[in-house]
Design a protein around this nucleic acid. Structure first.
Lengths: 205, 205
DNA sequence: AAATACGGCTAATTTGAATTAGCCGAACAA
DNA sequence: TTGTTCGGCTAATTCAAATTAGCCGTATTT
């Protein structure tokens, strides 16, 4: 990987562990294997590194969103996929979502960084809300909506049902971010949550 | 209020808005209405101010926990209180908990500060988890357990039921911390959540 | 009333971290 | 090959923020 990219990568790691203000330009440089002044050949300032991370993140997420829409925009067709969905499928859905967010390295670090920096300015707060609140909710709302369409879930309020599906996932995610040693237990809880969710909302009693 | 206490108070406000590292001793002093060097008549260092905040917080929470136990330890007696609990009571319970955490000034500021600082060291992470994850869960688990005992809620897994009750509350709380303009909407969602919770778990179908 | 403690101030001092200046060798382009 | 760019380095420089020194008035104690 070229140096410019490595700088972003190491900076993100450090920012996610200690927060922007507690990371020194020298720390980043050291990790990359160069001296602090050399960083300035690639970025104008420490702030510029942070901004570049945010930019790249936006790029990645847009990309990802686009990819999702390709499979997600045609609800009528996709609903068929869910026509014979079982509890196992639902479990898979939740687990996949959870593990992706939890273990995908870029996601994990970025989420932690945003958690730390979210109160610095409104833009970051909005980004956090978009990435970890609104987008997952609307995406999963769409999926669960289709499953309900297919007659496998019963509710008169998809939004609240989706909240009931996602809030515990979010909650467990924040626990694991803070303390990875809880992952195993969180995964068990996740399974129980989804099974119970299915019992509560599933049509096939 | 005496200066020593005012320093803690203003420091907490600032730390909760910008995080420890982005607050200067001079900022705190200015708010208190004195000059930076005068702060050192009260605290040995900037760090000591932070530590004092944590200490006071621990004191407050222990106090609060003690107060709760007085009413909470005798489950058999308290269960009677819930014998004729209605959806309205349940709504009140959730709303009270939510609003207390959301608006109690000390709580709000402390929670935001911990959110920012949680990844700095394990002690802070553990404190966060205790205050906003484990304690609420066990407290509400106790209450809901009693309500279930009284025959008003039906479940074979109180823990998951409690997760289903609390996770959305936690989720909404973090949204409001980030963006207070969402409070109104969050309160509506909270109500819908609890009503739906009651529909899902309530015995009196 | 003298002595002392308290809590404020201004003026240093110290420190440490970001950034700039300017050099230099390797690669590559003309 | 000669020049130019790239990306590294060391040695300043700058600047801001924490902390210390030392003064001083007020209030409290003895």
């Amino acid at each position: 990987m070229d140096t410019k990219q490595r700088i972003l990568d190491e900076a993100l790691t450090l920012f996610s562990e200690k927060g922007y203000a507690n990371v020194f330009v020298g720390d980043i440089a050291e990790r990359v294997g160069i001296k602090a002044p050399s960083l300035y050949k690639h970025y104008k300032s420490k702030r510029a590194i942070f901004d570049a991370i945010i930019e790249e993140m936006n790029r990645r997420f847009e990309e990802q969103a686009k990819a999702m829409n390709i499979n997600g925009s045609n609800a009528a067709a996709d609903a068929k996929v869910y026509e014979n969905m079982s509890e196992e499928h639902l479990l898979g859905l939740g687990r996949q979502f959870f593990l992706y967010f939890l273990h995908d390295d870029y996601n994990k670090r970025f989420r932690k960084m945003l958690t730390i920096e979210q109160f610095h300015d409104k833009e970051l707060a909005d980004l956090y809300t978009k990435l970890y609140v609104d987008d997952p909710l609307s995406y999963q709302g769409m999926l669960l909506g289709m499953v309900a369409q297919a007659g496998l879930l019963k509710t008169d309020n998809v939004e609240i049902m989706t909240l009931h599906f996602y809030a515990p996932i979010y909650y467990l995610l924040t626990i694991c971010d803070r303390d990875p040693s809880r992952e195993e237990q969180a995964l068990k809880t996740l399974d129980e949550h989804i099974r119970q969710f299915n019992r509560l909302y599933g049509r096939t009693k």
